[in-house]
């Protein structure tokens, strides 16, 4: 069966212009190609899940969206990625500002070895988003509130963030990302290092964040994709195989490979 292009399916589901659009994205690690002509639209204020077997390029793709691949030697990228119709790989785009607009949460919780407060305050501080101590306090509190962490940490703001549990650390990382008030949040398997209870909390949080932020999440758990996302994209061997509404992908996949993967026959 022929691969249905992403574009064709996007057209049917979202009427408004996508927040981010990826067109004909090729990515090379040195000589070897990791992504092949990926076309994907990311709809505003929705959760887009990227699924696929290990090594299929979904994390690599995610890192293209905020140019984190720039930090790796030997990576070359072709094609274009736009945020609000502006090419993010354009020379005029400042990568520092771009990453402030597109936040990221990583696989392993990676709080700075500083206090809880300083972790959240770091982003606003370096970007000069606040003018006074009070304002910063306010930003830190709201961010922790949004991350659903405020109740647990409000009496221990000065304690080291590394003393928190894994799940709390990951929510702190989300609060840290939110504090810069990004438009898009990228999450790279945010729950893979967490226990089921912490995972449930983070998933709940993702669902709440959806009302204010555009979220792209890479996940290994198909249940998670089904639970938190509105749209799902399936990657296989560096190619985007299929993208569509999450319900449709999980109940009625059009591609044989998608069907095989979600039913657990390969991966």
């Amino acid at each position: 069966m022929a691969v249905v292009t992403a574009r064709a399916m996007t057209d049917g589901t979202s009427a408004q212009a996508p927040k981010m659009a990826v067109r004909k994205l090729d990515l090379f690690y040195g000589e070897s190609q990791a992504l092949y002509e990926v076309d994907l639209d990311i709809a505003e204020k929705q959760v887009t899940a990227l699924i696929g077997p290990s090594g299929c390029g979904k994390s690599t793709f995610l890192r293209c969206l905020n140019r984190m691949n720039d930090t790796i030697d030997g990576v070359t990228i072709k094609g274009n990625v736009t945020l609000d119709d502006r090419d993010i790989y354009d020379k005029a785009i400042d990568v520092v500002q771009l990453r402030a607009r597109i936040g990221m949460v990583f696989q392993k919780p990676n709080p700075f070895p500083k206090s809880i407060y300083d972790n959240v305050a770091y982003g606003p501080r370096i970007h000069g988003l606040v003018n006074s101590r009070d304002e910063l306090d306010e930003v830190v509190m709201t961010s922790l509130e949004k991350a659903g962490l405020i109740k647990e940490v409000k009496d221990r703001m000065a304690e080291p963030a590394t003393g928190l549990s894994g799940g709390q650390q990951q929510r702190l990382c989300i609060a840290r990302a939110v504090a810069v008030s990004p438009e898009v949040i990228l999450m790279d398997e945010p729950c893979s290092a967490l226990d089921p209870i912490a995972t449930a909390k983070v998933e709940e949080l993702i669902d709440e964040l959806r009302s204010n932020y555009t979220i792209v999440i890479v996940t290994h758990s198909m249940q998670q994709a089904a639970r938190v996302s509105q749209r799902t994209a399936f990657f296989h061997l560096g190619k985007l195989v299929e993208v569509g509404d999450t319900d449709q992908i999980f109940t009625n996949p059009k591609d044989e490979r998608t069907k095989g993967y979600i039913t657990g026959r390969f991966g």
Partner: peptide, 10 residues
Amino acid sequence: SIRQAALGLG
């Protein structure tokens, strides 16, 4: 991961 965290925040 610390470098990534900082770079990821801009």
